[in-house]
Write a protein that binds this DNA or RNA. Sequence first.
DNA 1: TTGTATGCGTTATCAT
DNA 2: ATGATAACGCATACAA
Lengths: 312, 312
Amino acid sequence: MTVSRVLNAPENIHPATLAKVRAAIDSTGYVPNSAAKALRSSRSRLIAAVLPTLTGPIFLDTIEALAAGLARRGYQLIVGQSGYSDDKEDELLTDIISRRPDGIVLTGVGHSEEGRRRLLASGIPVVETWDLTEQPLDVLVGFSHEAVGREVSRFLVSRGRRKLALIGADDQRSQRRWSSFARSARAQGLAQPVAHFVPAPAKLADGRQALRAVLAQHRDIDALFCSSDSLAFGALVEARAQGIEVPRQLAVVGFGDLNFADQLEPALTTVRVDGPRIGELAAHCIVSRALGQPLDERIVDVGFSIVERSST
Amino acid sequence: MTVSRVLNAPENIHPATLAKVRAAIDSTGYVPNSAAKALRSSRSRLIAAVLPTLTGPIFLDTIEALAAGLARRGYQLIVGQSGYSDDKEDELLTDIISRRPDGIVLTGVGHSEEGRRRLLASGIPVVETWDLTEQPLDVLVGFSHEAVGREVSRFLVSRGRRKLALIGADDQRSQRRWSSFARSARAQGLAQPVAHFVPAPAKLADGRQALRAVLAQHRDIDALFCSSDSLAFGALVEARAQGIEVPRQLAVVGFGDLNFADQLEPALTTVRVDGPRIGELAAHCIVSRALGQPLDERIVDVGFSIVERSST
DNA sequence: TTGTATGCGTTATCAT
DNA sequence: ATGATAACGCATACAA
């Protein structure tokens, strides 16, 4: 008990005792046991994050900022990969809930019914990220993928493009950008855009192959929206290989504004999302919730912007 | 107690009891408490990983494979960022040790004396990665950065290059590649190579700026070794901007073989390391150690290869 | 086949 | 200012 006090409330301890206990701690290499602490206090100082994949460069900035923000606030981060699969996410969720984290940060808002139930039943605070919905589980930090699809299609039309195409990954958020992109194009009087999907996570080489496939069927497209900068990079490479001039014959828009986007030839027009901001906000929100502190807003829309460069 | 048995050893439970308990579990949403389990059994099923940064694309494949490998084996991963700083690593280690993970995976072998002491005192199995040393703390999965520096210099000399330069990040491993690169160049009768360092983690833009700085002083260099593909990408961009032909006037070698390396113009010659293999091996080793199983080898050298493309 | 007692390391609470 | 007791949820050892 005295040791506990020395560590947690040294102010009311006799200096001599303090010194003696600290000496003992040093000489024995004593380190308190967080599991016992958590068991006794029902506070684990652990936050869990569920991500589709750790390698997706898009989420990376967010995780890094999240990890840093949590560390700064005295929390540790436990990560799980759902691999873009609902079943995997549900399994993971059970494991995670058994750890009794003080909070859970999810990527996206599309969870299985079972997953939603378990999360709500656990009573653990949840922050969903990288997406927007009217009915979040709890707190939400993200932006609208529908708005992205719509704005990109309007942007392309405003630049005089008429034959739109899209290369996307088969994950939920990319699909929603696609739906909105297509709907908006039709609303503006264009034909239904061409689409080609590749398995997530999409790699550069997928972009090359995908554009090749699209061009084989639809040589007349004049604008291409790629659901990631990596895909766009691949598309630029393929366009050059096929002698298609970008942007004269084909406008290309990416997603993510990864650090190579402005160095490509031509520099890539892309959708920029403030990943670190999402991570930092998520850290703030989840910790506030964990401490039972009130939150200004339950839904934070961080927005996005279209960074216009020479590929359009 | 019966609930515990239903969950962990259902074979000796009366079918009726089994059904009753399971129904109760379902209806109440009971999820076992890992902290209590850990406290009782001294086995947390938790592995901690310490990384310089989560965004370094180099380690990413390793972390992903590590996370996947651990999940497959029923372990969860807790991550911490040391930010290339010893002090931060030591702080982190204390937090980590207090969690009583069943194992710790470290990046690199350069830890502070204090850190080494704490790790050894904790008795927690440790796997060091991405480096090689004669005296690992425990298990090691990596490769020799000295060998990388040496082999790249030999490679460049064998291709007729005589005025070597290096652009590196100021992290330990990059520095060791540099020392060896320089030593080997001198041993081959060349002058001391030119070097320029940028703060880790190095970004593409740093590569541009660094090459500009090097060229301002040493216009006559004919070969450049960059300590990451991102830096090399930036260097290629700058070389083109300055009208320097690669590889005719300047050979460029990267490190990492990131997925864009073969798509650059010219395609980048680079050092390839099997990141996923390191992660998977680390998962295997740390779990074996955690279970007290014997290990074939304590030191695994996964090696590296120089992938020759058109930038040299 | 099921149940009871006990202790893992911590801290809230109540003595002293 | 310090110590004693109890309880967090689980699983080992033992009993029935």
